[in-house]
Design a protein around this nucleic acid. Structure first.
Lengths: 149, 149
DNA sequence: CTTGACTCTGACATGGATGTCAGAGTTTAA
DNA sequence: TTAAACTCTGACATCCATGTCAGAGTCAAG
């Protein structure tokens, strides 16, 4: 299929399909005219790309992941352990975010469940201004020492 | 605490802490001098922000999620019925984000699981790939017209 | 006080993903 | 054959998260 159809079927702008190609994520064949010719499987590939992008992976990382997925349909392709390491790392990152969101959702559920049946009070919007604020004066010369992420 | 300490304790550049504030993710008090004054809990908040950002959520989405987390700190924030609707909406948004991330993680799991059996071989069941894709031949006159996503 | 560390605001810069347009060539329905 | 629909390349623009710098004001140790 050509780029327009792939774009329609995936909902991804043609501009991006060309961009993904330039980033090495897609390698459509070319007709004599220069027109790109995609395969059926590219529909899935594009959707995968979108999914991984939306999860925070960049095109470079995706470029390393895609070949591994592609072969799943057929034969196997060796994956260098270094990449696996990185993927494992990405996986943990995603897992943490999922947990974060689940916790948020649980709290949201609690709030919803505790909703007053009839009366209303002040809304929850941006900001709470707690009365007591714990102030901590810091080290003298170096005020505070570094610690990090 | 002031911005420098928060920056050190979270490993997040001061520039970003100010940016997050401008995006409505943080609302530090201000001293008479104009200096920002953060609470202890803001350390966690900033780390949460970082986790969600790294998962591909944008600051706007995070801004909708954060207030739900904040209530945990102490009392439940009273919610007027009018915004329950909105909360429900946010809940769905969060759920969708979770599902997206889970799908992404499954994708990575599939790749990791297919890795050469050198090191760890974590779970990640085979995971089925959509075998057949529904083919839609073009409607003739308008070559193809469907859209997706 | 003085001074160095800290903070403020605002402006400009960058990199990655994405949007948009222009001009030229290709395909295909009629 | 023609015209509309489609595609090509390349350039420029935008958005978002982030980096960096400058000039001015604040804080606190000595």
């Amino acid at each position: 299929m050509r780029i327009g159809e792939l774009s329609c079927r995936t909902g991804v702008h043609e501009r991006l399909l060309r961009y993904y190609e330039k980033q090495g994520l897609l390698w459509p064949e070319r007709a004599a005219s220069g027109y790109r010719s995609y395969q059926e499987s590219d529909v899935d590939t594009v959707l995968r790309i979108r999914r991984l992008l939306s999860a925070g992976l960049n095109t470079e990382t995706i470029g390393q992941v895609l070949p591994c997925i592609r072969v799943k349909a057929g034969n196997l392709v060796p994956v260098c352990p270094e990449i696996i390491d990185d993927l494992q790392h990405q996986r943990e990152r995603i897992t943490r975010a999922i947990e974060e969101l689940q916790a948020s959702r649980d709290l949201l559920d609690a709030v919803i469940a505790a909703a007053p049946l009839t009366v209303s009070s002040s809304a929850a919007p941006p900001h709470d201004d707690p009365p007591g604020r714990i102030e901590a004066r810091r080290p003298a010369s170096v005020r505070y020492k570094t610690s990090a992420n």
